[in-house]
Amino acid sequence: MAALSGFLRSKLFWPQAGLFHSGFRLLAGDKELLVKLRKKTGYSFMNCKKALEKFNNDVKEAETWLHQQAQKEGWNKASKLQGRKTAEGLVGLLQEGSSAVMVEVNCETDFVARNVKFQQLVQQAALCTLKHCRTGEQHQASYSKGLLPGEEILHMKTHESSLKDVLAMTIGKLGENMLVRRAAWFMISSDIFIGSYMHGTLQADLPSLTNMSFGKYGSLVVCRKTDASSTSNITELGRRLGQHVVGMNPLSVGSIEDECTGDAETRMLAQPFLLEPSLTVGQYLQPHGVQVLDFVRFECGEEIQSSETSPF
């Protein structure tokens, strides 16, 4: 048994390199610790068993070691996979109080984009961005806005580590190259509202993900009510404006007068409104007493100007 134990300990940590023999017998108390550690960490029973043996059933030490090994393996796999094309992925949208954020995270296949662990990575990127925008310097303007490249987001902290570590571990678990690509955020004052829309929506499978919206296209539209007596449904109006931004892809807000200019087709207020093409967006908004101030549109996988390099 000692020789066998020594052989097993000479194997690499993860199952790809070598697995634990399934014939080991555990006492009832050991089994309870094993189940507890497995449930808490999500790692395989074999790796959890090794951790408990290594630290004499000290669950806390075993958990720490498991995370360290997972991170190491994730970094190794991330380094091997870097350079592989990441054309799929998700746009994630999170609204909370006076803040709204949108992130894009890419992977290699749509199959992985539908995996809960990948969606949790998108959620962590959104939560990091939300925390970042709330802890930054606040101005007295009616709204503030930020656009962040992926490298900046990766250095932000989750509850346990940097997002860069979470990315590496997710790559290690799912076996595909991934890229936290970009994020955008808005913070608004009390007289402003944010409309949002997500196209190609993907249903989240975990209750912990229900605060997120996932899809292939997303938009945030910042608006101000100019008529306090207006009875418009602000939430629905904001959703319609977001839908227009996704569908018509304007490049700027512009003004109603822009409909006579040569680049009217790229200015939101001068464009035919997606849901009522007989009206421009500006004409549609006039009776609703609403002014569009700004917007952001993300399309998963679209070309953007900033350079993208692997973080690994």
Rank of each mutant, 00 (worst) to 15 (best):
K39H: 11
D191E: 14
K31S: 05
S190R: 13
R297N: 14
N47W: 02
D30V: 07
G92W: 08
K54M: 11
I234L: 15
L34G: 06
V246I: 15
Q120G: 03
H139K: 08
V59Y: 09
T158I: 01
A184V: 09
Q203H: 03
G215W: 14
R267Y: 01
L94W: 12
P277A: 12
A228N: 10
K31C: 09
A125M: 06
A125G: 06
Q305D: 14
N177Q: 07
G195V: 07
R9H: 13
S307I: 10
R297K: 13
K60I: 11
C300Q: 15
F193V: 04
K36I: 04
L148T: 13
L12N: 11
T64E: 13
T170S: 06
F24H: 14
E61G: 07
S5I: 07
S229P: 00
P250Y: 04
H21L: 12
V35I: 12
E152Q: 14
T135I: 06
T170A: 05
C133H: 15
L202V: 11
L93H: 09
V296R: 09
A28K: 14
L121N: 09
F118S: 03
L27V: 00
D205V: 07
F295Q: 08
K54Y: 02
C260Q: 15
L220E: 04
G29D: 10
F7C: 10
V166L: 07
Q95Y: 00
M198W: 02
S190Y: 03
G29E: 13
Q291P: 00
G23A: 12
G74A: 04
L81T: 03
F111V: 15
E308S: 09
N106K: 10
S44C: 13
S307R: 06
A100V: 07
L279I: 01
R134D: 08
L179Q: 15
K216S: 10
I234K: 12
G175P: 02
L202G: 00
D205C: 07
E108N: 06
C107R: 01
K39L: 09
N177L: 06
F298L: 10
S230Q: 07
S44W: 06
R240C: 07
V296D: 12
